[in-house]
Nucleic acid binder design. Structure first.
Lengths: 111, 111
DNA sequence: TGAATACTTAAGCAGGTACTTGACAATCAA
DNA sequence: TTGATTGTCAAGTACCTGCTTAAGTATTCA
């Protein structure tokens, strides 16, 4: 239960607004305005979403002059991907084992 | 923004209790009691988490007699994995393009 | 039949999330 | 230096989440 980071990453990805921001940012860096403009909400609301993305580590930003530029940090993206992929693989392995067990049982029946 | 399903899947995975349940279920099916026993909360609370997992499609269950047996449904697990993997790939592709651009710029400087 | 098991529902509460508007800083360009 | 641009903070509201306890239902076993 020590994966406090995964909590935040999955929670960040659970919102369509924030996934839209990620979609935009995988194309390359963007300013706060550029991220907020296509969204059906006020700028402060978009800022809150951005703060959640930064808090999760999915996005980093730096301010130069009056412009804050945001970009993807792929580390947490990889970590989330791995968690899901690993669990799916475990499930498949276990399903294979069940298959092997059923095959065994079947052969025993045939004897 | 039509990925209502992804909202629920990521939201389900954002909670450590629910990830613990998934960890248990990738090993094989389990009853409600088996899932709830190791958790530091009441049975009704665990049931609510289970309901969220079922609502997301990550888990299915069926009741036989008085026992409800829960198991992983891998479809949403794959879908979540793909979403993250695709975005990470897009980001990498774009980073490569930036690298190519910088290389080009560098060669032009050298001429 | 009567007790134990395995859930299920309901009511209630504390705290968190997702917005809104309005006010305000800081920077840049004319 | 004035005005537009870009971002930030604060207060307020409505709804959602995660838990609790208490009570109830359905099933199985002795």
């Amino acid at each position: 239960m020590l994966n406090y980071q995964l909590d935040k990453t999955f929670a960040a990805l659970a919102d369509p607004t924030r996934r839209a921001m990620v979609e935009r940012l995988v194309q390359g860096p963007a300013t706060v305005c550029e991220l907020a403009k296509p969204l059906p909400m006020s700028l402060p609301a978009a800022m809150l979403h951005l703060k959640v993305l930064e808090g999760s580590g999915l996005v980093t930003s730096q301010k130069v002059g009056r412009v804050r530029t945001c970009r993807i940090d792929p580390k947490m993206l990889s970590q989330a991907e791995s968690w899901v992929a690993d669990r799916r693989r475990l499930w498949e392995r276990n399903l294979d084992r069940l298959g092997a067990f059923l095959d065994e049982t079947k052969s025993e029946d045939e004897q």
